[in-house]
Design a protein around this nucleic acid. Sequence first.
DNA 1: TGCCTACATATAGAGAGCCTACATGTAGAC
DNA 2: GTCTACATGTAGGCTCTCTATATGTAGGCA
Lengths: 117, 117
Amino acid sequence: MGDVNPDALRGHMDALLLSVLEHEPLHGYAIIEALTERSGGALSVPTGTVYPALRRLERVGYLASEWATVGGRKRRTYRLTASGAKQLAGERSAWREFTGVIGSVLEPGLRRAEAAG
Amino acid sequence: MGDVNPDALRGHMDALLLSVLEHEPLHGYAIIEALTERSGGALSVPTGTVYPALRRLERVGYLASEWATVGGRKRRTYRLTASGAKQLAGERSAWREFTGVIGSVLEPGLRRAEAAG
DNA sequence: TGCCTACATATAGAGAGCCTACATGTAGAC
DNA sequence: GTCTACATGTAGGCTCTCTATATGTAGGCA
């Protein structure tokens, strides 16, 4: 129920951001809301994390952005590039491997059900 | 397969270390080997990560250590304290929550089987 | 008019921890 | 005499996330 430990998020933020942009372009503020909603309220990622991360992902080519004005307010809308989609697939498989590896150390006796996509 | 991304380990190292010490005291070098073995070779945590982390965990009271000489070589053997055992339980539940939360964002449609301990 | 909240983006600087690289030393094999 | 495995440790760097702050619009409310 408590919030997720920020340190644990390290190295997973990219996957999170690419993932919410998979099916529709969104602007930063909406991305934060989507993250909160999808996680059932467990994730409340601060703007100081999200905005720099989005710029970083754009810089490396995983995202592209353009400005729009909606209701008098300016938005920078991000969308996944082809490169970003590829990266997302990689992040997903890395995530599955990661949970498998850590899980195998943390709970050696646990029968892990890895559901296929 | 590939090694786990070091950044992803952030915030999980404590859980990993406490976990391998759960049932038996071990010295640093053996801890690294245990981590590698339990993970099926996927984890190769460098000494520059493990030794400082062990000291940190001792400093906060989760571990206790004592020196021993075995075969002419000096070892610092760490064991889990009561406080550390408590912390390990917390880390495990945090891990389950963490994977649930990230998983729900990364793979919203996936049926997740959360096996009970 | 002024205040507050929601919407929306952005940067500076701090903090933490994992990494690379290096330093040191013993034991045993060849 | 050299090499590898065993064994511990520190210094410094790097990157990412966070807190705090700045800026500005729109709309509700008193």
